[in-house]
């Protein structure tokens, strides 16, 4: 009896967490997975199993393919520019040339976009990018453009505009994490490099970047997953338009569920997003394991 009790002790300790995870994560995921194989569940009172039909319909749909392509562009560009901007600002804030009080001021300014919620960011940029907004006003005042540009209403510009907004909103996370990483790099490495005759570019390339590599990989993978799920920002700025120009997998899923009431198609799309995220997550876990070892 005591042996069974001893063996089950860890499970009892974990049981509240397991239970919560089961209720809040596992059951919904399994339900969505099952829904994706059914004949329009929720709206249909007696749904039938239809195998892979929903997945075939979804992946052969041109709207899905466009949403996938837009999502990839939005995600990859966001991750790349988050990294470039985050690293640049982190290096600036880590520079010895700046006095501490000035660093504190810049740190506050640079981190501001991260403080806002996606809804606030969307409203803010909708106002600024409005044809009557401050961006067009400035561009016209400085004679860079002649007429107001419809940043979020133009099929050619809307995707770049929402990507830019997301880059602006997300770089501080990189900046803060990379700054912490930079402050953890031993000064001795730079001293040794300097003695060996390395210039600033070589120090950055051969010491800073390799030292930051584990953080950069982790950040990039997490950011890839988060950005791929971005919904609020897109929904509140363009709603996926104009004419699907900014349609993302997340907005498509929402529209399928709550506008077309195609819950099975929405479940299939949601599960494809989950599969894509899981694919990246596996790499993340493997990278973490390798780093631990």
């Amino acid at each position: 009896m005591s042996k069974i009790f001893r063996k089950s002790t860890p499970l009892i300790y974990l049981s509240p967490t397991i239970l919560l995870l089961t209720i809040l994560s596992l059951i919904p995921i399994v339900m969505v997975f099952i829904y994706s194989f059914m004949d329009n569940v929720v709206m249909n009172q007696n749904p039938k199993f239809v195998g892979m039909t929903n997945y075939v319909k979804i992946v052969t749909n041109s709207v899905f393919l466009q949403a996938f392509s837009n999502t990839m562009y939005f995600t990859v560009m966001s991750v790349v520019f988050h990294l470039i901007l985050g690293l640049t600002f982190a290096l600036l804030l880590n520079a010895r040339a700046l006095p501490p009080f000035l660093k504190a001021i810049f740190r506050t300014i640079y981190i501001l976009p991260w403080v806002f919620t996606a809804a606030v960011i969307a409203i803010l940029w909708r106002l600024m990018l409005n044809p009557n907004g401050v961006i067009n006003y400035l561009l016209i005042t400085f004679e860079i453009i002649e007429r107001p540009v419809e940043w979020l209403s133009s099929r050619q510009l809307a995707l770049h505009a929402v990507t830019f907004i997301n880059i602006w909103a997300g770089y501080p996370f990189y900046m803060v994490s990379l700054l912490a990483g930079l402050q953890g790099i031993s000064e001795e490495l730079y001293e040794a490099g300097t003695i060996d005759g390395a210039n600033q570019r070589q120090l950055f390339w051969y010491i800073t970047l390799p030292q930051l590599k584990p953080i950069i990989i982790s950040l990039a993978m997490l950011d890839f997953i988060w950005t791929m799920h971005q919904f609020t920002l897109i929904w509140m700025t363009t709603g996926g338009g104009p004419i699907r120009a900014t349609e993302m997998l997340s907005t498509l899923t929402y529209k399928l569920a709550f506008s077309s009431y195609q819950f099975s198609h929405a479940s299939a799309t949601a599960f494809l997003i989950l599969a894509l995220s899981a694919f990246v997550a596996i790499f993340y876990v493997r990278q973490q394991k390798a780093a631990d070892e």
Binding site: E150, S153, A158
Partner: peptide
């Protein structure tokens, strides 16, 4: 027609 029609909502 006022510019920005393609992303304009009722409240705008």
């Amino acid at each position: 027609i006022a510019p920005g029609a393609f992303s304009m909502r009722e409240q705008d």
